[in-house]
Design a protein around this nucleic acid. Sequence first.
DNA 1: CATCAGGGCCCTG
DNA 2: CAGGGCCCTGAT
Length: 325
Amino acid sequence: MTNRITPLKYKYNQLLFPTPPFNFEGTVHKPSHFPSSDNSYKNGKCRFSLRYQDRTLGIGLSNLGTTYKPKIRLTTFSSKKLSNSLLESIRAEIEFRFDLGVDLKEFNKICRRDSVLKPVLKRWIGTRVSNGNSLYEFMVIATVLQNATVKRSVQMIENMFKRFGARISFDGERLSAFWPPDSIDNASEEELRALKLGYRVTMLKRQAHSLITGEIDENQLRLLSSSDLKIKLLELYGIGPASVWYLLFEVFKRYDAFEYISPWEQKIYSRLLFEKDLVDPKIILDEVNTRWGKWKMLAAHYLFEDLFWQRKTQHIPWLEELIRL
DNA sequence: CATCAGGGCCCTG
DNA sequence: CAGGGCCCTGAT
């Protein structure tokens, strides 16, 4: 266990040019995601820890552009010097994880014709599906989400950060960083149980193990068609019908990955799309399919995040009840 | 004090 | 394919 904080004193700037139109804030900060100590968003600046090629790095993203002339400053912080080729591959990885290269013209056209999304698009045009986490990290997140309230999920992931993660400081922030998977693989069951992970311990251990054996190769998986990818992801221990859509969408940017609705999401979509308390999941799924087709999950994401942004400035009682922080 | 569901999944019959 | 069990917590 390391409570020691590692300062990342080397810093490298690069410029990123997302495809226009681009929305910086909507892309780098997702208010519907639960808060955790590996990332922060303050004063328009996004910072997070990045475990990449066995290094623990700090990343800063800040906006230097406008919606139609997008430009981002990517700053990579490290405790050791980094080579140009490594910096280049970090840049490419960040561009992928934040989906900076996608062309959303067709999606925007569909949104403008849609009564529900039209006003939402006005606020968030250019927003990407984005996630700073690797597949492995997102599997961990999906696992701690299972059968738990948000508060408990946060408790579980923070317990894991404390026990297995690193602490880094850079750019005036102190953040946690994910652990190398073998530390979970080597940990004893009792040790993990002590972190109040419950029955998820088996899943977390098997996931870490399949990563270090090379059974999971994220870069290879990115090349698969969505249907093949879905089959592969469902083979991962602990990934079932609810989690697989999160992975397909957030990690692999498959914009149509919307085939399953969990009960709390069902309530939210019932409100947003039908102005009712509870609509049958199948009806919701049919509705989003006819409305938004192959862009249905991205469209739903816009609705969802827009709602959670509203929550920051106004009290939405029915939503508070569902979130149960 | 007990019981139960929660932002599921696996395993069994 | 339906249903039980699973870690833990907080609500009732």
